[in-house]
Deep mutational scan, measured.
Amino acid sequence: KLPPGWEKRMSRSSGRVYYFNHITNASQWERPSGNSSSG
C-alpha cells in the first residue's frame, strides 16, 4: 500500500506508470516508500 496522499497514475505521453501525491503535488517515477519514518 502506498503512503498517504500517493496514488498510481499513468503518463499519457510515455505510457509509463508514475506516482503522484495530491497532498504535496509531488510526482516521481520511483515507488514512494511507506515503511521508512520521515525525518
Rank of each mutant, 00 (worst) to 15 (best):
I23R: 06
Y19H: 00
P3K: 02
P32N: 01
S37C: 10
G34T: 11
E30Q: 09
V17M: 08
S36D: 12
W29L: 06
P3G: 05
S27E: 06
Y19S: 00
R16L: 07
N25V: 04
L2V: 04
S37A: 14
M10A: 09
S11A: 09
P4F: 11
G39N: 11
R16N: 05
M10P: 06
I23N: 08
Q28A: 04
R12M: 15
A26E: 14
W6Q: 01
N35V: 11
R31A: 09
R31Y: 11
K1D: 15
H22M: 09
I23A: 08
S11H: 15
S11I: 14
G39F: 10
N35Y: 09
K1F: 11
S14A: 07
G34N: 12
F20T: 02
A26R: 14
G34D: 13
N35I: 12
L2S: 02
P3M: 03
R9G: 03
M10W: 15
P3E: 04
G34M: 12
Y18E: 02
N35E: 13
H22V: 15
R9T: 03
H22Q: 09
G34A: 11
I23T: 07
S27G: 04
S27A: 14
W6V: 01
K8M: 14
Q28F: 03
S27L: 14
G34R: 10
S38I: 11
Q28W: 04
P4G: 05
G15R: 07
H22P: 07
R9M: 05
R16W: 05
S37V: 12
W29P: 03
G39Q: 13
Q28E: 03
E30R: 09
R9W: 03
W29R: 06
S11M: 10
N35L: 12
S33G: 11
R12D: 14
N21G: 01
R12K: 14
S14N: 12
F20G: 00
K1T: 11
W29H: 05
H22R: 14
T24I: 04
P4D: 09
S37L: 11
M10K: 14
G15I: 02
S33M: 11
W6E: 00
S37N: 12
P3H: 02
S14T: 14
P4S: 06
S14Q: 08
R16Y: 05
Y18W: 06
G15T: 03
P4E: 09
G39I: 11
G15S: 04
P32K: 02
S37M: 10
P4K: 07
K1L: 13
L2M: 05
K8G: 04
S36T: 13
S33T: 14
S36Y: 08
P32I: 01
N25K: 15
R9I: 06
N35K: 09
W6R: 00
R16M: 06
E7I: 09
R12H: 15
F20L: 03
F20I: 05
T24A: 03
L2P: 15
A26Q: 15
Y18R: 01
K8L: 13
W6T: 00
S14R: 06
P3A: 04
S36V: 13
S27Y: 14
E7Q: 08
N35T: 12
R12C: 15
I23F: 13
K1E: 14
S11D: 15
K8T: 09
S11R: 04
Y18M: 02
S33E: 12
V17G: 02
I23W: 08
S27N: 04
L2T: 03
F20R: 02
G39S: 11
R16V: 06
R31L: 09
N21F: 04
S27W: 15
N25H: 14
H22S: 11
K1Y: 11
R9A: 04
T24V: 02
M10Y: 15
Q28L: 03
S38V: 12
S33P: 08
K1A: 13
R31W: 12
E7F: 04
H22W: 13
Y19E: 00
N21H: 04
T24R: 03
G34Y: 13
R9H: 07
S13H: 14
H22A: 09
N21I: 02
G34F: 14
S14V: 06
